Amino acid sequence: MAATPVDGLGVVFTADDPLVGVDLDDCRDPETETPTAWAADVIGQLDSYTEVSPSETGYHILITGDLPEGRNRAGDIELYDRARFFTVTGDHVADTPTSIEARTEALATLHAERVAVDTSESATAAPSTAAETGSANAAGPGDLADSELIDRATQAANGDKFSRLWQGDTSGYPSQSEADMALCSLLAFWTGGDTTRVDRLFRQSGLMRDKWDEVHYADGSTYGATTVDRAVARTTETYTPAAAEDSPATTDDPRTLPASAADSAHTATTETAATEADTVDTTTRAEARLDRITELTSRLEAVLAENEQLREELAAERERREALEAEGESADTGWWPFS
Rank of each mutant, 00 (worst) to 15 (best):
S99E: 14
R103N: 11
I43R: 00
I43P: 08
D118R: 09
P68G: 00
A83E: 09
T57H: 06
R84G: 01
T87M: 07
V88Q: 08
T36L: 07
S55K: 01
T64C: 12
A108G: 14
A74S: 10
V42G: 06
D91F: 04
T96N: 04
V117F: 14
E105A: 13
E56W: 00
R114I: 05
Y59S: 08
Q45A: 15
L107A: 11
F85P: 02
A37T: 14
D66G: 07
R73C: 02
V88D: 09
L107M: 14
T36W: 03
Q45Y: 12
T34C: 06
S55W: 01
P30W: 00
D47K: 13
E105S: 12
P35R: 06
I77Q: 01
D118M: 11
Y59L: 03
A74R: 06
E31I: 00
P68M: 01
R103K: 13
V42D: 05
Y49G: 08
R73T: 09
A106Y: 06
A116P: 02
D41P: 01
S53A: 05
P30T: 03
W38K: 11
V115F: 09
G75I: 08
S120W: 06
R84K: 15
D81F: 15
I77P: 04
Q45E: 15
A108D: 13
T96M: 05
A40Y: 03
D118A: 07
R84P: 00
P30D: 02
T64R: 13
T87S: 07
A40R: 09
T64P: 01
V52L: 13
V52P: 05
S120T: 15
L67A: 03
I77G: 04
H111G: 02
A74W: 05
R82F: 04
T89I: 01
E101H: 09
L107Y: 10
E31M: 00
T119G: 14
A37G: 05
T34F: 02
T57A: 04
D76N: 14
E69K: 07
D66Q: 14
A74N: 06
P97E: 07
I63W: 00
E113T: 12
I43L: 14
A102L: 13
I100C: 01
D118N: 13
D81V: 08
V42H: 04
R84I: 02
L110Y: 11
T109Q: 15
H111N: 12
S99W: 09
T104V: 10
H111R: 11
P30K: 04
P68T: 01
E78H: 08
D95L: 12
I43A: 10
E105W: 02
L46A: 13
V117N: 14
T119Q: 12
E78P: 06
F85M: 09
A108T: 14
A106E: 14
L107Q: 13
A74P: 03
A40H: 07
V93K: 01
Y49C: 09
E31W: 00
G58R: 03
A116I: 04
A106L: 03
S55D: 03
L62M: 06
D76I: 11
E78I: 07
E69T: 09
D47P: 08
A37I: 11
A106I: 07
D81M: 13
S53N: 03
W38N: 10
Y80D: 13
W38V: 14
